[in-house]
């Protein structure tokens, strides 16, 4: 069923999702192995006031700048807050998250078009993506992919064995800041299309779902990208069909995220089955001790 995507706005929406898929697959792998789900969640919420201030000051272009500034700021703050990986850091992150989100809501509630603005900020406007926005997303995607290509080795080592990585001379603080900045850039890239709430799904679900079927990081990244693509296609189609055929208003971005969640749920049994399947074991005398 290609026909709906021949409509320009649908084609642009799919292009935007495809660009996001390209970066979210690999980036979500690092969110997964570094257990940064909560940090990603915090990032998406702290970007919210930036988005609002940016939008009020300069419309859709201002929104981009506002998001960028807020995202980079929080990337730095969260890096400092999560340094010790103690429980108190979690609490501090949660405080930052809720505080910033509340500020955003207060700011947006001062506007007359409160409800529609809030919806747009939270859930994005996937169907009104402009060619210019696609170009900006493409540039950000390129920057993120380059950052990934440089950082993946060190991030992997740091995620697996922080003490070993530090002993090998890697600077953990800088690596963490770098990864958080990349996460922030993904949020900025995705925020206009899918909104501040749903972008967290793109950062977490692809790798988490892919992990259920594979142990290999590269496969996780590729599969994650594939899943976002498939969810994007399915979700857009679903949203199109629901509104045109059945007159049900289904936000495009939510449909995409729901499709992604569905993929996750469908893959859950695979993980269970894999866990139960006998793995190649070592010879009995090596299991002693």
């Amino acid at each position: 069923m290609i026909e709906p995507f021949a409509v320009p706005f649908m084609g642009r929406a799919l292009t935007e999702i495809a660009l996001l898929a390209l970066i979210c697959g690999p980036v979500s792998v690092f969110v997964f192995v570094r257990r940064l789900s909560f940090v990603s969640d915090a990032l998406t919420h702290t970007v919210f006031p930036g988005v609002v201030i940016g939008f009020v000051a300069g419309g859709m272009d201002g929104l981009f700048t506002g998001a960028l500034v807020a995202a980079l700021l929080t990337a730095g703050v969260l890096t400092v807050l999560t340094r010790g990986a103690r429980l108190t850091d979690d609490a501090a992150t949660a405080v930052v998250l809720t505080a910033m989100f509340s500020i955003g809501v207060v700011l947006v509630s001062r506007r007359t078009s409160y409800t529609s603005d809030l919806t747009a900020f939270l859930f994005g406007r996937l169907l009104t993506v402009t060619p210019r926005q696609i170009a900006e997303t493409a540039v950000l995607a390129a920057v993120i992919l380059v950052a990934l290509a440089i950082g993946w080795r060190a991030w992997l080592f740091r995620a697996f064995d922080p003490a070993g990585a530090a002993a090998a001379g890697l600077r953990i603080g800088r690596l963490d800041l770098w990864l958080n900045v990349v996460l922030a850039l993904v949020v900025v890239a995705a925020v206009r299309a899918v909104g501040t709430i749903l972008v967290v799904a793109l950062l977490i679900i692809p790798a988490a779902a892919a992990r259920m079927v594979t142990d290999r990081l590269a496969v996780m990244a590729l599969l994650g990208t594939g899943l976002v693509l498939a969810a994007g296609y399915t979700g857009l189609l679903l949203s199109w069909t629901a509104s045109l055929r059945y007159g049900v208003a289904l936000t495009a971005a939510s449909a995409v995220v729901l499709a992604l969640v569905l993929a996750y749920l469908l893959l859950l049994p695979v993980r269970r089955w894999r866990d139960r399947a006998p793995v190649e074991r070592t010879s009995p005398h090596e299991l002693v001790g």
Binding site: I150, L156, D161, G164
Partner: peptide, 25 residues
């Protein structure tokens, strides 16, 4: 201290010993 669920192979772990020589790129 290491997470047994971490998705890396034994070979990838040993390759980490070469990262310093490999550098970033």
């Amino acid at each position: 201290n290491l997470d047994p669920d971490f998705p890396v192979s034994a070979r990838q772990v040993v390759m980490m010993g070469r990262y310093r020589r490999l550098g970033w790129w």
